[in-house]
């Protein structure tokens, strides 16, 4: 079977990504993370961590699918998507754990640059993940997010500005993009009352 996606398959994927839900989840997650770091509130840290699950699934189920109509991706693509997502979660969790251990002083390296700026690796990996996802799915705004994340991490270390401020700025950029995409989606797909067909 030909594995190269057809233009209709690519269009279907774009419809899936262009409802703004992922952007909104990431943006809100960043805003909550910023507030959590600023105020040092455990509940907010927890909420920031699970914001994706709290927002993503209810929005898709109650707002997106009743307007767009439910559809399933091809099994081969769905398998690839799940595998890609799992790899990303594993790599980022591993890196988060590494940063935590580094913070605790349990990891030490001889390289003085890495010793001082080890968190940059984390930021670069998140940036690469965004860029790769954007490249594979043909979503150009993910490249923009990738650049933003990398800039935020690099800037934090070389200009000594607190991380919560950068997370806040990122959240304030990404959340409105998500809201705008969602608004466009809602205007394009008005609610439909489905009756027996």
């Amino acid at each position: 079977m030909n594995s190269k996606p057809t233009s209709i398959e690519l269009e279907t994927r774009r419809i899936f990504y262009n409802d703004g839900v992922i952007d909104l989840c990431v943006g809100v997650g960043l805003l909550l993370s910023s507030l959590a770091l600023w105020l040092d509130l455990f509940l907010l840290k927890y909420l920031a961590g699970v914001s994706f699950i709290i927002i993503y699934f209810p929005l898709k189920k109650n707002v997106i699918y009743p307007r767009l109509g439910y559809f399933k991706f091809k099994k081969s693509y769905e398998r690839r998507l799940k595998a890609r997502f799992m790899i990303m979660v594993l790599v980022l969790s591993g890196l988060a754990m590494m940063v935590y251990l580094w913070d605790e002083g349990r990891i030490q390296v001889a390289n003085s640059f890495l010793e001082e700026y080890y968190r940059i690796i984390f930021g670069i990996c998140i940036g690469i993940a965004f860029a790769l996802w954007g490249y594979l799915e043909g979503i150009t705004r993910y490249h923009f997010y990738s650049g933003l994340v990398m800039m935020a991490y690099l800037h934090k270390y070389f200009f000594s500005t607190p991380l919560p401020i950068y997370l806040l700025i990122l959240g304030l950029i990404i959340t409105p993009i998500g809201v705008k995409l969602l608004k466009d989606f809602l205007l394009k797909y008005p609610p439909v009352m489905m009756e027996e067909v």
Binding site: I8, E9, T12, P66, L68, G69, Y70, F71, K72, V197
Partner: peptide
Amino acid sequence: LGYLSAVDGGEFLFLMNQTKLTRGNLS
């Protein structure tokens, strides 16, 4: 058929939105 070939299955509403056909016509 073109839209259905791109997915593993789609709801009536999904096809209606993509093809811009009316409910009766699509049915």
